[in-house]
Design a protein around this nucleic acid. Sequence first.
DNA 1: TTTT
DNA 2: TTTT
Lengths: 175, 175, 175, 175
Amino acid sequence: MAGSVNKVILVGNLGKDPEVRKMGSGDPVVSFSIATSESWRDKNSGERKEKTEWHNIVIFNDNLAKVAEQYLKKGMKVYIEGALQTRKWQDQTGNERYTTEIVLQKFRGELQMLDSRGEGAGAGGGRSFDSSSRGQVSDNGDYGSDFGRSSASPSGSSSNAGGNFSRDLDDEIPF
Amino acid sequence: MAGSVNKVILVGNLGKDPEVRKMGSGDPVVSFSIATSESWRDKNSGERKEKTEWHNIVIFNDNLAKVAEQYLKKGMKVYIEGALQTRKWQDQTGNERYTTEIVLQKFRGELQMLDSRGEGAGAGGGRSFDSSSRGQVSDNGDYGSDFGRSSASPSGSSSNAGGNFSRDLDDEIPF
Amino acid sequence: MAGSVNKVILVGNLGKDPEVRKMGSGDPVVSFSIATSESWRDKNSGERKEKTEWHNIVIFNDNLAKVAEQYLKKGMKVYIEGALQTRKWQDQTGNERYTTEIVLQKFRGELQMLDSRGEGAGAGGGRSFDSSSRGQVSDNGDYGSDFGRSSASPSGSSSNAGGNFSRDLDDEIPF
Amino acid sequence: MAGSVNKVILVGNLGKDPEVRKMGSGDPVVSFSIATSESWRDKNSGERKEKTEWHNIVIFNDNLAKVAEQYLKKGMKVYIEGALQTRKWQDQTGNERYTTEIVLQKFRGELQMLDSRGEGAGAGGGRSFDSSSRGQVSDNGDYGSDFGRSSASPSGSSSNAGGNFSRDLDDEIPF
DNA sequence: TTTT
DNA sequence: TTTT
């Protein structure tokens, strides 16, 4: 269709370490969920309330997938820009089901790490994001069976995290 | 959570006339789907390909709901800004299911009509968007039973369509 | 700086036909202005008011520059996604001045044409966007002197306008 | 004009503490600059390069102005959503000049603080953002003379920073 | 499952 | 279910 736009902009925190699958081509596909939330004061009760929303992110963009695999950890805050995509799949009983994801396609989308907290995390200082998630067992979601699957970056070397990863800008003059 | 953002920006075309339900309070809630699509040339076959994505829009914002009810018609192109929200519901067999929608909450979100085509449509000139959808029977989706339900604006008076409807700007000086 | 975002999203109408300059490399750079506006009702007087804002767009992205050169015409409505950039220059008396533009850099940004009105415009039907601007004399703005300059697409063949031009998607499989 | 959109989305760091002026009505207007930057590797030299862009933010939205006045400090990372606005003014020699700003108008725009670093900053721990800017002398920009002017929140009590400040959500049920 |  |  002429003239359409499909864009999602999120800032939220990873619920777990990313999960990495390899395409047949060897290209990595990285997926994770991030939480966003809103809080407000209830008009009637006067109580503070909060509502959390979870978003499934899937990264097909090679450069961003590598960055996500290397640096993203449970708890980190990220800026994500992608497109909405609803996938149809079948549950165990053969029923059609739908899952909506935010997809960062090849050559598209954006990922920015927003905490500087990763800096020096390797030195043991500050709050650690990944200690609890090392050795994590993958949760075996519903992403289809043609992918290998491995937990992301067990090496956990995030010493130079906090970077700025744009789409395809390496080896390019932006202006 | 501190510092989160949940924003969706879409430009697409309505698949049908909007559907209007009334809240217990009498406030209208308007919902409709819009299509976005991408096209590209296949690297191998050289063929032109196209992929269409459908997005469910739900408008709780009173001002925008009224605008949507009055002016939006099947086929029109709109700009929509809202937030992602995933609703859990139960199908007939009692299974949990999830639906992701783009929600324009009270005092939030944005809706812009992008065709000037509505102008003069009543005069019979140009292409008509709604002839096929007049008298449309509502499709009885899965939105819960506490709402009255009516098909949107069968009167079809869209003669002053093409407007600019922002959130809560009436009676306000923007600068 | 780690983790920054610089994004502008505009939907507006071209004030004039685009202007095309050629870089030393032969690459086209296309620039034009688009207008956005807001209207509201004045709280005190009750009058309807409107405020128009003009935005300077500069396209370095090769694919989008070609599209802009070929299809965009005065009056057309477009969706533009780019980045803010403020340029310093000197006026005739040697004073430093600044101009802020929305830049679509190489491999970045997005441009979508939002009217289907271009269709058949050549046939004289409907509102014509470009008749007054054919043969337009360039307005000689302040873009620096190291560029050749020519008015855009005097041929005016916009018969297949209304298209969907994304960044670098040609020859690419989006999923 | 029907159907226009004017939106800027930025994530960047404050260059200085915000500056607060009072309108005749007593409402605060808060302004500050934030930096965004891009880095890339030069195609030819192979060097890492970086380009920083500065953006002038002006907050007329009362709720967000209060938040900005209370919590924002030099160095903090923020998410900002506003609209582009170009103001005409006269320099000392009577020449017309233009300044483009990102404006958060009444009832519009968004501001999110993205560091949790403010926590405990008063305790002297971690990196301090504002030590150098305490007692800052206002830089006397070009905002016109009808405003009182004061440096923002010299008290520097940012112990509960890191919050989530949305537009007008207090006392509202978002769904 | 995150974060405050 | 739209649109080109």
